[in-house]
């Protein structure tokens, strides 16, 4: 769930065209880049796919934080592969967004100057090795909840990107859970680290789904367009129901004293996260917002001479080739 609180755009277009468009979506057809689409559909998708792409890119940072300190060569290799996958996801998603008429550079600029957001979760610090486990298990686990249904989203390029991404995400979640398992079965210090990671990442993971949107007009429009497949509450419930038994299996305690199985609804009752914290993080006041954005800006600014150099060289080659012809 790397797109949060994406507001859908109102659409004022020819009602006949809109109805025909909606009929295609209702029939389960995929909308392709050259097809007619309402302006609101296009803009909402750019926002949503862009936010997802940015989350993959910024999401490299909290895990990259531990690559140089991974405890074994195998863990280091797995973590490198995972972070590399995430950069790859960013590439497919920027590619999908480009089919809607916005360039990767434009989207990047909007990330760097704060006009576009990335998932709130990446504004939390990764403090111990167990956080690599918690991020894989909980954060990727939450992402999968949202991304699996999005494989059926109405926009063709987005749907195809999601299919590729989902294959890799399930491996990510498994490696995270495996780290947690090793630590939960390890020394007392390791177990303490694992519990501490769960304590710190539980509520921020629940926040990944965004506040309740069951009454939101924007969400209703996005769901009608099949850009959004489930409400935030449905996904959050599903995530909790899946994750609590996994925590029990690890012998770890979910930091929620109100957590109870509710036979009637066939799911857990659980405490809502502190939404004021969520809005603080969204506004830029999370523990790592400043560092994350500064790191991305620095990478971009420090890399300007590289991008310019490579472009200049490519142009010289092209000119030389033309002259030779």
């Amino acid at each position: 769930m790397y797109a949060q609180m994406v507001t859908s755009e109102a659409t004022q277009e020819d009602p006949q065209k809109l109805a025909a468009f909606q009929a295609r979506i209702d029939a389960g057809e995929k909308i392709e880049p050259k097809d007619w689409m309402p302006e609101g559909y296009r803009k909402t998708l750019i926002r949503q796919i862009g936010q997802h792409a940015h989350s993959e890119i910024v999401g490299q940072l909290p895990e990259g934080n531990w690559i140089t300190r991974a405890p074994t060569l195998e863990r280091k290799a797995i973590l490198l592969a995972k972070v590399q996958d995430e950069a790859g996801h960013g590439l497919y998603l920027y590619g999908a967004a480009e089919t809607l008429g916005v360039s990767r550079d434009e989207l990047t600029e909007m990330l760097l100057d704060g006009r576009m957001k990335y998932s709130s979760i990446f504004n939390y610090p990764t403090l111990t090795w167990a956080d690599m486990g918690a991020v894989g298990w909980l954060v990727d686990g939450a992402a999968i909840m949202n991304q699996v249904p999005l494989q059926r989203t109405s926009y063709g390029p987005y749907s195809r990107a999601m299919i590729r991404i989902c294959k890799e995400e399930s491996f990510h979640q498994r490696q995270g859970y495996h780290i947690m398992m090793k630590m939960a079965q390890g020394t007392p210090a390791q177990k303490k680290m694992a519990q501490d990671a769960l304590n710190r990442f539980w509520y921020p993971s629940l926040m990944m789904f965004g506040p309740s949107d069951k009454d939101s007009v924007h969400s209703a429009q996005s769901m009608k367009w099949k850009i959004k497949m489930n409400t935030n509450d449905e996904l959050r419930q599903k995530f909790v129901d899946q994750t609590v038994p996994q925590a029990e299996y690890l012998g770890l305690t979910v930091p929620d004293e109100t957590l109870r199985w509710n036979e009637e609804k066939g799911g857990y009752d659980f405490a809502e996260p502190d939404w004021s914290e969520f809005f603080d993080v969204i506004k830029g006041n999370g523990p790592c917002n400043t560092e994350r954005l500064a790191a991305r800006n620095k990478a971009w600014d420090d890399g300007a001479w590289v991008r310019e150099g490579l472009i200049a060289h490519a142009e010289k080659r092209r000119a030389a080739k033309l002259a030779a012809e």
């Binding site: 940072l61 590439l91 990478a299 991008r307």
Partner: peptide, 12 residues
């Protein structure tokens, strides 16, 4: 370098 390269393709 992870996450700090000049362009996404280079990160990969």
């Amino acid at each position: 370098w992870c996450g700090h390269a000049p362009v996404l393709e280079e990160d990969i």
